[in-house]
Design a protein around this nucleic acid. Sequence first.
DNA 1: CACCCGATGGTCT
DNA 2: GACCATCGGGTGG
Length: 203
Amino acid sequence: MSAARLAVDPLAAARRLLGATLSCRGVDATIVEVEAYGGVPDGPWPDPAAHSYRGPTARNAVMFGPPGRLYTYRSYGMHICANVVCGPDGTAAAVLLRAAVIAGGQELVRVRRGVAVPDVALARGPGNLCSALGITMEDNGIDLFDPSSPVRLRLGGPLAAQAGPRVGVSQAADRPWRLWAPRTPEVSAYRRSPRAPAPGASD
DNA sequence: CACCCGATGGTCT
DNA sequence: GACCATCGGGTGG
């Protein structure tokens, strides 16, 4: 069972997901940018920026379940973002999929994303990635390693990784839990949250 | 390039 | 009623 390789801390899981292949509804994509997220204050990886920080709710329930499942959520009322749940069952943690290189099914991606979008931007950014692969809220909670699932994950050889602060979070803004493949134009640009304290402040 | 801002709706206080 | 794990189009240098 490949999901067992994700039953680790979120940063280690993030490293294993860089270079992995995500397949969904006719499209194959190589993951090139991810962000690690932890859990509750008294858990092993307390993370004020994580959806799971304040305990289980209807939205984040999947994060507390077994590793290898897909956790999707709606962002700013209009975009879908996708995570891979990691850590052991019962412990909240997940890795946000931020960008990918389209390796197959590019024609389908063009239909979903539009003809004007440059190749490198087809799955750049978490909302765009889900749009490109056709991932919706219907997919929340599915097992990424079940052959019958519409969204599948294949772990590959880990890629070289560069690390830096996470994009868009106002809490724990400087924690270097964003990983990306160096010199890869498909990786999204860094944007600090306008609500985050000045760089250098503590977690 | 660098900001800046509006769209838009679920979730949680 | 505030707060977003975003995006793309606008403005100005």
